[in-house]
Design a binder for these strands. Sequence first.
DNA 1: AGTATGAATGATATACTATATCATACTTTT
DNA 2: AAAAGTATGATATAGTATATCATTCATACT
Lengths: 174, 174
Amino acid sequence: MVSRFHCFDSLPEKVCQQEKIKKTILKAKGVCDRAGTRFTKKRARIFKIMLQADIPLSAYEIANLYNQSSNEKMPPMSVYRILQFFVSLNLVHKLSLNNKYVTCSHISCDHTHEAPQFLLCNNCAIATEISMSSKFLRDLKKLVKNAGFALINPQLEFQCLCDTCYANSKISLR
Amino acid sequence: MVSRFHCFDSLPEKVCQQEKIKKTILKAKGVCDRAGTRFTKKRARIFKIMLQADIPLSAYEIANLYNQSSNEKMPPMSVYRILQFFVSLNLVHKLSLNNKYVTCSHISCDHTHEAPQFLLCNNCAIATEISMSSKFLRDLKKLVKNAGFALINPQLEFQCLCDTCYANSKISLR
DNA sequence: AGTATGAATGATATACTATATCATACTTTT
DNA sequence: AAAAGTATGATATAGTATATCATTCATACT
């Protein structure tokens, strides 16, 4: 039996997603307030674009998305500036493997995140942020120290295939 | 008592370094031979430049070093091509944290290297390659798998300060 | 209200990193 | 000598990022 509302099957999920975005934006605003900085309209708009995309975006991609949906101009220079601002507050992470930027996934949840790790699909755009255990982090710091260095940023990026792309790649190799 | 040859105190070390470079180049040539590819003069020259520098270099830096010491022109395009060639043979690693390239440090030693990790000083140019234990690597793969991904390249890069720069940074903060 | 201050953005130029593409030259095999 | 595959030349262009100076905006202070 087909629901009368089968066209809207995904609606509840989308509504939920919208709610989460709203909540995250509020949290981000809170972070800015506490830092004594302003969560301006342009910053908010860029932040929202990044949340809605839900995948890492390049600065120029963000500029394009911004300009497509508005009359004001958002030049790439300003995007970089705003991204740097968010990165400095840990609201956004920069991924050096693909030169893209993604919102921190731990803004709306309340647990502090010490060491973000990113799993990047090498084939599609998907990226997932996970947190390593504090034991893992301790071991890592020790390892680095023994080699004559001091770890100043525990962010890690892993070149992966997501399960879907991995399955597809195996099929295409036949 | 000062040695009569105090000006040359570092000579033995340098000679040793020269020997190591020669040996590494021969090994690299062997890798190319076995892969059915050619270790051409240009490739050899770039490889030597990278070994002598002993720090990660950008493609354009390599082109400049090449051109400074020769009359033939080495355009950046060719450098990129040759770097890609070396990377495909695992003779050179690309560091995405600083967009630079460095020779694999395990060419002259004979142990196979599964998972290169790089410790990059955020202040000076120094970078060190270490290898993680196979247990660490297994744990990592499991962690990634549990998150719905398959690890396709275990290379990792850590943003660090070398001990020297770390010490200096603490002094300058006073 | 007026102004001083610092924060944020506008605007422009430029540097740096990387790939695409088509043509030419060089090696090796047959 | 020709063919095939490998390597390089040459040029254009895409993509990523920073420097710098000018201007606008928000806030707090007088």
